[in-house]
Design a protein around this nucleic acid. Structure first.
Lengths: 233, 233
DNA sequence: AAGTGGTCTAGACCACGGC
DNA sequence: CCGTGGTCTAGACCACTTA
């Protein structure tokens, strides 16, 4: 056939977005079904399907079987953040990364952590504190607990040269995680490590990592004063 | 045919993940091509393709034409946050939402904002300050500027009943945005609005919204003390 | 019960990018 | 050059949901 430049799912997405913008399909509208759209755009249903599936994933559309596809009333911005390994984050900007171990203590798991990680009384945990530097300026203070009942091999590592996050990544790949963003005031100790002042507002993240329903580690990361996390959507 | 329960892309994903977990395909490994995998799993190439495409999107794999598909060395956790309209965020948890306008002033755009939003000298802007309450407790203080050169109709709205974010969503749908997360210390004024103390560490987000390369609005959102943003990946 | 999205297949052509 | 992923098609069956 003449092969009139086959219709791509990208162009279908664009056309649908355009129709929403120019109010052909206002928010709340139920738009035509896939078969009809395929005919309208002159492409296969699979092509329409991929376009619509992605738009739904992006929070623009809402799809239900039988009911059809509708334009969301308040399209939910969906921010995506890549949470890179800190070494990569620094080296990708051309900076020099340096790591230092501050503290390393093995002990019974404290009760507050026992609850958080679903551990049992008497279970062993490894408590680490580390500093990460960017061009020799303080970048992040890391306060981490590792569940030795799950990754007992950590007890044999001194963590003097390699950070616990990097080590864990290679040891226990493909974990699930719960990430929390918050703000906290610098304690005197943390302020000293971060060349900051006691009481400064620090951007803070917490992360609990699981492998198949077993908690691997809990980390609190305190960023240097003025750190900002930015993304485009 | 016997229809031996067709192989789903979900199961292909699961099998690939399993092979990574048990080190059949260690990080850094180049895994077999799509045709070979399709044969291995007993399904069509399109099925393998969808599975692999999603795994790549999730940051587990890295794909390149000709080179093939490899298991990432440090799988990048990719956190996704839904940034809902604040009313929805509160009402979905069963809370009662209340909005109040604090300030509304139209003026020339200040120079710091002119640079940020790529506006011109003498352009008009609308400066709004608002409070959002959850069960009548302070939830968020909003400090927003609207570019009247782009959405001039905002000049006619009093924003006494409907918040600027909700109004903008209906007026200018499908915008792009740049979102920033940070921590900041409460000023005396903001602390009073949020029932907090001067100097408290507040979780803060900033957002610049664009429509086709024209800045629509800039907002700084200060959350009440103790607010945390959490997600699972 | 029936309509709509969800998915799978088999085959084809395309385009990027190592070699 | 040519292998690998990227995409499109036409057709089919399935499964969830609402009427």
């Amino acid at each position: 056939m003449g092969q009139a430049a086959r219709v791509s799912y990208q162009s279908v997405k664009a056309k649908v977005l355009q129709s929403i913008r120019d109010s052909t399909w206002a928010p709340g509208t139920i738009i035509p079904g896939e078969v009809e759209l395929a005919e309208l755009f002159g492409c296969a249903r699979a092509t329409v399907n991929r376009a619509m599936r992605e738009l739904a994933e992006e929070g623009i559309l809402e799809r239900k079987r039988k009911a059809g596809t509708l334009v969301k009333l308040s399209p939910t911005p969906r921010a995506k953040f890549d949470i890179p390994v800190i070494r990569d984050e620094i080296e990708q900007t051309g900076g020099v990364y340096r790591y230092a171990l501050v503290k390393r203590v093995q002990s019974d798991v404290p009760s507050w952590l026992r609850a958080k990680l679903a551990m049992s009384e008497g279970d062993q945990a490894l408590h680490l504190q580390c500093m990460h530097y960017h061009n020799n300026k303080p970048y992040q203070f890391e306060d981490r607990w590792i569940n030795l009942e799950v990754v007992g091999s950590a007890a044999q590592i001194d963590f003097k040269d390699v950070g616990p996050n990097e080590w864990l990544l290679s040891e226990v790949p493909l974990t699930n995680a719960e990430i929390t963003f918050a703000a906290s005031r610098a304690t005197k100790e943390i302020a000293e490590f971060l060349d900051s002042s006691e009481g400064d507002a620090l951007f803070t993240t917490e992360r609990i990592t699981w492998i198949e329903n077993r908690a691997v580690t809990f980390a609190r990361l305190f960023y240097h004063l003025g750190y900002r996390l930015t993304t485009r959507i």
